[in-house]
Design a binder for these strands. Structure first.
Lengths: 214, 214
DNA sequence: AGCTGATGTGGACACTGACAACATCACGCT
DNA sequence: AGCGTGATGTTGTCAGTGTCCACATCAGCT
């Protein structure tokens, strides 16, 4: 049936018509783009291009561009959580009080470091936020769950009173989140890294004293 | 020369060819759009449409879409600053220490309130941030300048030691900024207003204790 | 063998930011 | 008085994007 063997050997699809594994590849590609350029860089057609597939192919796996972005956001949140867990586990201190305190500090440092190291992912993580599913701290997972667990350790160690435990999660979260935002996308972008780290320590001091007294 | 008097009486431009006052009108329109839809809503063609002018007219007054957005950002920053100043001036307390403390709290409340009340402007204000021109707190104006002034009042009143004054600005800023972000664009959007205000007070308590001891 | 549903393609449409060529007009110079 | 010149506004165009629709391909079941 071939009119020309040349066309037949050159033209035939080097890739099968059906990719077979497209969805995860699309997500990976989108994550890669998000790391480079943030939320606005996650362009449906560019993702398809890099996946070696036609534009529109993504619509078989995602409702929307927003749906794909949400997937990237979930991945970013998971990455952030893991970064926090890893850093927390590096604390090797016996005394329960100082141990819990230091673990809280590492939580904050990990949060800010992640934002600095992965600005694109950090941005995507908080652009399409479905928010905490419920207001019950116990069942919550993700970065917020990690923070809550560490704060509970402080209460168990007797370093944080139950009264001050109320709202402490939001206070900690807001502080490191704001610090990260101001440095990553905000007006403090140009601050040298050394100074940034130094001031972060003093900010963590403020939170520590505010929660547990001097 | 008119082929038809009807066309001549119907067609003539109701508006003069040159707008005469376009630039400020464009900025106003852009601000209006930003309030409704945030940074992404500031669409050059839509701004021109609402100003009753053709697309591209804006290019005679702004280099870029980014340039127009920067103008909106400046306006938003000025609005935020004014909101803070107004709220600060409502504090009517004699005792210098409690007066300065309360003025600091009002600074934070005003910041968060503005973000809640004008989410679009708040977002634009921090999207295109040129950042503090210099790291010298004295010459700085805008919201950051207001904060620094209030913190200096606390030092003058003897409530805040000079050592703890270092980095206090960033600590305060980060806390309220993070609190605002989490509530305006972030995972805490769905929190009821009453609870939001209540927790903000406890967060401000943490900052107060952290800076000035219990 | 043939059907069917899932998956991928090609083509369109409306929208956007940006550029280039042209139109209009206020103002100053001769 | 006339002219021209630069600022301002317009029209036309291009590439790029998200999304919809019709069609192509193909694996697996009947």
């Amino acid at each position: 049936m071939s009119t020309s063997p040349i066309l037949d050997s050159v033209t035939p699809r080097t890739q099968p018509y059906h990719h077979g594994n497209l969805r995860p590849v699309l997500v990976d590609t989108a994550v890669q783009l998000a790391r480079l350029t943030g939320p606005d860089g996650v362009v449906l057609r560019e993702v398809a291009r890099r996946a070696g597939v036609s534009h529109n192919a993504a619509y078989r796996h995602f409702e929307d561009r927003a749906a794909l972005l949400q997937e990237v956001s979930d991945r970013a949140m998971a990455d952030l959580e893991q970064a926090m867990r890893e850093r927390i586990d590096t604390v090797a201190i016996e005394d329960p009080v100082t141990r819990a305190s230091e673990r809280l500090r590492e939580t904050g440092r990990a949060y800010v470091d992640f934002a600095i190291r992965e600005p694109g992912l950090f941005a995507v993580a908080f652009t399409t936020s479905a928010g905490p599913r419920d207001h019950n701290s116990a069942t919550w997972t993700g970065p917020y769950g990690v923070l809550n667990a560490v704060l509970d350790e402080l209460v168990d160690a007797g370093a944080l009173t139950p009264e001050r435990r109320v709202g402490a999660d939001v206070a900690c979260w807001a502080t490191v989140h704001g610090y990260a935002e101001l440095h990553v996308h905000g007006p403090l972008q140009e601050m040298p890294a050394a100074l940034r780290d130094e001031i972060l320590e003093s900010v963590l001091d403020v939170v520590h004293r505010g929660l547990m007294g001097s």
